[in-house]
């Protein structure tokens, strides 16, 4: 089964992508090194594959002696960057508890807790203390900022400048630039608030403007209609 493909790949020059390897060999210990390299690829090329990473964590779970804490840490940082998806929990479910007790993982779990409970101030403070863990992964800040903006846009139509600034951890001139960029590219509007500084009008979506929600209540799938075809005919 699984092993054959890896051998074939080594014999012939045909190369499979890691995604294909995972699809064909979901339960094959031989692809472990490929998956570890792939985690590093994801870090350097700013890509992400949850399936491949879960597959690797699964192989670690089956053979704990092969587990590399450095790789696990990278997977977890990548999973944080995938918020609001529940990927971080999905990974923790597979990582043995004694590994989770290590200092660097404890820190990552605290970071995840702050993000899950939308405490961005505390998150950025904690992240600043753990530069060594998070800064090795390019795109980390931007990914968390995108998540913060996502939660804000689910919640608010308009948000005070200071609240937004705190959530994404940017201040002063760079914040102005950031706003400018989003006014041009994401449809943000800057508004003068009533006496207490600027307000940012976030783009409308069905969550902050419930009236936009399409009423799917009365649409009927075609398969259901087919039941009465004989009668209509």
């Amino acid at each position: 089964m699984g092993r054959e493909l890896v051998q074939k790949q080594q014999q012939s020059a045909v190369s499979y992508t890691v995604e294909q390897l995972v699809a064909v060999n979901p339960y094959n210990p031989d692809i472990l090194p490929d998956l570890e390299n792939y985690v590093n690829d994801q870090v350097s090329s700013q890509t992400y594959s949850l399936d491949a990473n879960l597959c690797l964590l699964r192989l670690y779970q089956f053979e704990p002696e092969r587990l590399s804490t450095q790789i696990v840490a990278r997977i977890l940082v990548k999973a944080l960057m995938a918020m609001p998806a529940p990927d971080f929990s999905l990974c923790l479910f597979l990582i043995p508890e004694r590994v989770q007790m290590e200092e660097q993982f404890k820190t990552l779990i605290v970071l995840s807790h702050y993000l899950e409970t939308a405490r961005f101030r505390q998150f950025w403070d904690e992240a600043a203390k753990s530069r060594l863990i998070v800064e090795v992964v390019p795109g980390f800040e931007q990914a968390i900022q995108a998540y913060a903006i996502h939660v804000l846009s689910l919640t608010c139509q308009k948000v005070p400048r200071s609240v937004l600034a705190e959530a994404i951890n940017i201040e002063g001139l760079s914040f102005d630039k950031f706003l400018e960029h989003h006014v041009v590219n994401s449809g943000w509007i800057l508004e003068k608030g009533q006496g207490k500084g600027q307000l940012i009008v976030l783009p409308r979506n069905e969550f902050n403007h419930p009236e936009l929600k399409k009423s799917t209540a009365d649409s009927i799938p075609l398969e259901h209609i087919t039941r009465i075809y004989p009668i209509l005919g």
């Binding site: 899950e116 409970t117 939308a118 405490r119 939660v151 689910l154 919640t155 969550f207």
Partner: peptide, 11 residues
């Protein structure tokens, strides 16, 4: 933060 958590957890 509580309101945002509410939104995040219910979506």
């Amino acid at each position: 933060t509580i309101l945002m958590t509410y939104k995040h957890k219910t979506h």
